[in-house]
Write a protein that binds this DNA or RNA. Sequence first.
DNA 1: AATAAAATATGATTTCAATCATATTTGCGA
DNA 2: TCGCAAATATGATTGAAATCATATTTTATT
Lengths: 197, 197
Amino acid sequence: MLPKPFDLIPTKAHHPRRFDKNGLVFRQGGKTRGLFFVIDGCIELRRFTEAGQTITIHRARSSETFAEASLFSQTYHCDGIATCESNLVELDRSIILEKIQNDPNFALAIAKRFAQQNQYYRRKLELLAIKSAEDRIYTAIVDGLFTGKIKAFATDIGLTHEAVYRGLAKLVDKSLLIKTGRGKYAPTTTAKNLLLI
Amino acid sequence: MLPKPFDLIPTKAHHPRRFDKNGLVFRQGGKTRGLFFVIDGCIELRRFTEAGQTITIHRARSSETFAEASLFSQTYHCDGIATCESNLVELDRSIILEKIQNDPNFALAIAKRFAQQNQYYRRKLELLAIKSAEDRIYTAIVDGLFTGKIKAFATDIGLTHEAVYRGLAKLVDKSLLIKTGRGKYAPTTTAKNLLLI
DNA sequence: AATAAAATATGATTTCAATCATATTTGCGA
DNA sequence: TCGCAAATATGATTGAAATCATATTTTATT
């Protein structure tokens, strides 16, 4: 259930936590107890700046972990707030830190997880740097980011669903994509040849 | 010179590498030898998809590391290409993997680095999700991302420099920022009070 | 000190995605 | 299976950032 390597953490270090909408998971400045896995729900991490503004620095959703960096800090650097009813698993900081130091396999596995997350985020940043909706949609599809529904896909790549529907239609026009069904699109092999001209 | 914890890697595992423009650092499918630190230059990571398209999945620049995830893979999953003359340090994969397993401090430190990088990328993704140029600029400044020149800042936050100049001017108009000099801006404390109204 | 190059800044215009609107299809629960 | 909600899809309009242009100031170079 928990993603690797957190499945290796003994059950005594798992703490199920339930939060109502607007529930406070942790507070900026509060002593760090651990990182979290989202079973379901949505958590916003918000930081208060010296000048007094609130900025959202991350949104965690189902099956994601958050507050990993709190492992290496005495206090949380932001507020964690449930924006809807949420079920989390809290994972003990001290036990994870201990395992990183004393369990070589765990150390490798957690480094692997973090490194791959990094890779994913860098890829996403590169994608969002593409200004043109059409190019962004095409790159995202080619990169395998279009799996579920179009609306979710649209949000994921930072466009409105209308823009994505239109972009998809244009890409089909240009035969870079083929429509394999309602709401289903795939890159054509034609695309390959076009690029070689 | 190398960022923590790579400064702990013995010098025999550092390999200085110089690449001309368009030089191939590594090839997709090639056996992984290590990760890289960019002393100076610019490296693009490009992946070739089954359908034959090339997509850029990351751009690494001076004082950044790249290909960390290759530590946990037998082969590189993308091409690494120098887009300008570049000086790198290659860090031996096997020695890093060995240290993660046998040096608890190193294991902790590399997990810390990766976790904090993740935090930074998530923050950046959240920033780029802000559509309005004005809001994005303001949030970025409040988040401490505006340090150097405006042009670099503009690129960093995914806007043209013109849009940033205009946004800054508007934010000054609204007294959310004060212009402390040519090309210098800072959040006002007035901003705090405005938010409380 | 003179000149060139880069950064800052703002104006005019264009472009393209957001927004608003609406129709159709699909899937789901009563 | 009927009805309703959500997803897909496209049209019309708006708005905001990109683009193109140009002036000024600063910094770097000779």
